[in-house]
Simulated assay, not measured.
Amino acid sequence: MPVPILAAQDLTKTYGRGPDRFDALKGVSLEIDRGDSVAIVGKSGSGKSTLMHILALLDTPGGGQVHVDGTDAKTLSGRRLNALRNTMFGFVFQQFFLNPGSSVLENVALPLKIAGVGSRERRTRGMAVLEQLELADKARNKAGNLSGGQKQRVVIARALINSPQVLFADEPTGNLDTATGRIVEDILFDLNSNHGITLITVTHDHDLAARFNRRLYIRDGLLINTGEEHAA
């Protein structure tokens, strides 16, 4: 039986102490198979972003375990943890986190520069993902001069630069108008269905969630059974 690409067991996470204590997660368990598309759905404060950050190894749980492709994240040192996260995962966030004064190509290739990849290879790989997202003609443009939809496509290109196996997206269309948001959604689902990338998205948008193979609903730090986990 295939090993899930991501598995969580009894995840807990607490912030603050005493009267300020907030239990963001209260024992969440789940499995996500390679190539799946999963929407984690919940209102603001439900724990959905905390859950995604822990699954993406951007945060550590207070209790419980996360396994990535069968490996217990707790067994990884700082360097091995960073290497696993940087090679397996890509990230698309609602806030673009682009350097507005740098070119589109420089923004896209930044993860490779951090990893010590040479300038020629950075350009080759950067242009390849920009071609994939129909942004090659914007390679020399300053990122700050792009539209919202173009910026989000640049963010997706940057997330793809290391050929990730899992793409995490946190409210990826939250800052976009409906038409532009639909274009970005189509790009993400194409990466999932035609390129085999596992897609995990956090959203409060039920229309967006309906497009996923699976929907996991979270409320007050707990996954709830709505009878709608799998798409029809």
Results as ranks from 00 to 15, higher is better:
154 V>W: 04
90 G>P: 13
16 G>R: 02
79 R>S: 15
38 V>Y: 09
89 F>Q: 02
95 Q>A: 12
134 E>L: 12
2 P>M: 10
54 I>F: 08
74 K>C: 02
106 E>L: 08
13 K>H: 12
129 V>W: 15
121 E>L: 13
104 V>Y: 11
21 R>N: 01
208 L>R: 05
22 F>G: 01
158 R>I: 03
155 V>P: 04
126 G>W: 04
180 T>Y: 05
227 G>I: 10
177 D>Y: 05
140 R>N: 06
75 T>A: 09
8 A>W: 01
65 Q>V: 15
187 I>G: 05
72 D>W: 09
193 S>G: 00
213 N>H: 08
124 T>H: 14
73 A>D: 07
12 T>S: 08
116 G>Q: 08
36 D>A: 13
27 G>P: 06
98 L>G: 00
27 G>Q: 01
86 N>Y: 00
185 E>A: 14
65 Q>N: 14
202 V>W: 04
156 I>Q: 06
123 R>W: 08
197 I>L: 14
10 D>F: 10
206 H>F: 06
190 D>N: 12
115 A>P: 05
35 G>E: 10
31 E>R: 12
88 M>S: 15
83 A>S: 14
172 P>M: 01
127 M>F: 09
151 K>Q: 07
75 T>R: 13
11 L>Q: 13
175 N>Q: 10
20 D>V: 00
135 L>I: 14
152 Q>W: 01
159 A>W: 08
86 N>C: 02
78 G>I: 03
177 D>G: 14
17 R>W: 06
76 L>I: 02
77 S>W: 03
190 D>W: 06
160 L>T: 02
32 I>E: 09
121 E>A: 14
65 Q>E: 15
15 Y>T: 00
108 V>R: 10
145 N>M: 11
70 G>F: 05
230 H>G: 07
193 S>T: 07
30 L>D: 07
56 A>C: 07
130 L>V: 06
29 S>H: 04
219 R>F: 02
128 A>F: 02
59 D>W: 01
32 I>P: 11
173 T>S: 03
204 H>W: 00
63 G>N: 08
137 D>S: 08
90 G>C: 06
99 N>Q: 08
205 D>K: 01
229 E>R: 14
185 E>Q: 13
55 L>C: 03
49 S>D: 01
98 L>A: 01
50 T>E: 01
9 Q>S: 15
175 N>R: 04
150 Q>D: 10
227 G>V: 04
103 S>A: 09
70 G>I: 04
16 G>H: 06
154 V>C: 12
211 R>F: 00
158 R>C: 04
145 N>R: 15
107 N>D: 08
216 L>G: 06
36 D>Q: 09
67 H>E: 06
135 L>S: 11
63 G>H: 10
117 V>F: 15
130 L>G: 10
112 L>Y: 09
7 A>W: 07
175 N>H: 11
136 A>V: 07
